[in-house]
Structures are given as C-alpha cells and as structure tokens.
C-alpha cells in the first residue's frame, strides 16, 4: 500500500511535467492545426536556459524559472514568425516537416555549444519528509504545486479572458476572426509564447528533478508529452492535462510492477490502442463544421 502511494506521488510529479509540455502541443494544434514537433526540443532549451542562468547569473529559483520561461517563449515566438508563419497556408505536411527541421536544428545547435551533458546546480535545497513510510521531498511538492498552478492560470486565461476567447475562436475558424476586429497574428504569437513558455517551465522543473541535461533529452519526453496530448484529445486544453497525468501514472506504475524496460513500449501501445477505439482522444470531439 505504502509502495503504491509512493509511486502515485512519483506519477503525479512526472504527470505534471508531461501535462505542462502537452499543453504546448495542444495549444499550437488548436490554433494552427499543426503539430509543433520542435516543442520537445524547446523543453530541452528550457532546461539549458535554467543551467545557463543558474551557473552564470547565479540567480535563485524563482528568477531562474521566470527568465527561462521568458527565454523559451521568445524563442517560440521567433520560430513561429520565421519558420511557421510563411507556411500558414501551405499543406500541413510542409509545416510539420519544418517543425521537425526546427527541432533538429535546436538539438544540434545546443550540441554544438555544449557537446557534453551538463549538470544543473541545486537551486532548491530539498528536504525530504517521511510521512508514514512515504518519502516526500519539498522539490516534488514544488514541482507538482507549481505545475498545477500554471495549469489553472492557463485554464483561466483560455476560458475566462478576452484573449482566451480569441484563441478559442481562432481554433474554430481563423478566417473569420479578423472580421471581428481581432489581430489574429498577435493572438497566434501570444499562443506560441504561452505554450512554449510552459514547455520551458517544464524543462526547468525536469532539470531540477533530474539535473543531468543533454541536447537530446527533449526527444523522448517530447514524444511522451505528444502522446499525452493525443490521449487527452489534441486541441483540448483540459484533455492535455488529463492525458499528461494518465501517461505519467501508466509509466510509473509499469516501471513499478514490471521490468522498467517495458515502460516506453506500454506508453506507445497505449497510444496505438486508444487511437483505434477513440481516435479523438478522451476529451476530444470530432469537429462538426457547419457549412
């Protein structure tokens, strides 16, 4: 029982990181119907920003997190402006291939600057408590609480603010939105900033939990987060959060009870099975476009 509780806590930590990254995939898909396959690598860049800021500017956790998020968000906006925007009316396949290219560029650019894995210094002096046999670290609590807080803020923005309303309108039909007086390009840039910023935050938190970082760390995590977004229903914000926690739980539980090498097989099998029975994901709906 205690073992299961311990694993549930681990699942919550991993799940919240997947959920944060999955949000970036789902937001971009929602407004542009493209999969930003560079998103996992932006997560990696977030971890590297964290490393650079912590080592060279010697800032503490909160400013490091905020600056890293800002850095990744700016990079996301620049990538959208120069790599994706010219392809907005091109077939989606072209945009997706471009995204893969951007991802490879980010990996290799980082590799060129940092050929060896780096170690993120300790930003949070984590204390570990023993609660009836379950060990809980303050770092774990910070990661989970902070991720949930970011998700609540995002959900509020999307559901309750005028900007969020514009984002939802764009996801329905972006050709009509300018006729409402809404500057579509600005909203798309903002969506990229928020989505990639959350990915950057996930990179920082992942880097604190697993401090050895390398330019390829975003690939597998990115795929897992992408699966999370699809499992939850791509384009659906709450679905991405749910999908992240499901995938985190599945992985941790598989590793806890089965040989840990089964972990990735099970994640990808989950995606394949789900796609057969519920191709739109858990919360996704087939988009009934009235003509």
């Amino acid at each position: 029982m205690i073992y299961i509780l311990q694993q549930a806590l681990n699942a919550l930590q991993l799940g919240s990181i997947y959920a944060l990254i999955a949000l970036g995939y789902t937001m971009v898909y929602g407004i542009l119907t493209m999969i930003n396959f560079a998103h996992g690598d932006l997560f990696m860049v977030g971890a590297f920003f964290c490393f650079l800021i912590a080592v060279y500017l010697k800032l503490s956790f909160v400013p490091t997190l905020l600056l890293s998020m800002l850095g990744v968000a700016s990079l996301g906006v620049i990538i959208e402006r120069f790599a994706y925007k010219p392809l907005r009316n091109a077939p989606r396949v072209s945009a997706i291939i471009t995204a893969l290219g951007v991802g490879l560029f980010l990996e290799n650019f980082t590799l060129a600057l940092s050929p060896y894995p780096q170690h993120i210094p300790t930003l949070i002096n984590s204390t570990t408590w023993n609660l009836g046999g379950v060990s809980v670290s303050s770092l774990q609590i910070i990661i989970i609480v902070l991720s949930l807080a970011l998700m609540f803020i995002l959900d509020f923005i999307v559901q309750r603010t005028k900007v969020g309303m514009a984002m939802r309108a764009i996801s329905w039909d972006k050709t009509i939105v300018p006729l409402m007086g809404v500057p579509v390009n600005k909203i798309i840039s903002l969506t990229f900033a928020i989505g990639t910023g959350l990915g950057g935050a996930a990179g920082v938190m992942y880097g604190l939990a697993y401090p050895v970082i390398d330019p390829y760390m975003g690939i597998m995590v990115g795929w897992k987060a992408f699966i999370s977004a699809v499992v939850g229903g791509i384009g659906n914000i709450r679905g991405a959060m749910i999908g992240g926690f499901i995938l985190g739980s599945v992985e941790i539980m598989v590793a806890a009870f089965l040989p840990s090498t089964y972990r990735d097989v099970v994640s990808f099998a989950l995606l394949l099975i789900l796609l057969i029975f519920r191709p739109y994901g858990i919360l996704g709906k087939p988009h009934p476009q009235k003509v």
Partner: peptide, 28 residues
C-alpha cells in the same frame, strides 16, 4: 476598427463560443 464590419458568407458563427462570447469578441 475604422468602421467597416462584415457579416461573412455562411454566417461565420464560432460554434464553440457562446452567443454572448460571439458578441463580445466583436467588441475587441
């Protein structure tokens, strides 16, 4: 903003937004 609004062909209603939100959006 200058004062020309269009009611597009096929009406262009945002089906995922409420009636009130549809109206609110155009006051942007």
């Amino acid at each position: 903003a200058m004062g020309i609004a269009q009611v597009p062909e096929g009406r262009g209603i945002f089906g995922n937004l409420t009636v009130m939100e549809n109206l609110k959006l155009s006051t942007w």
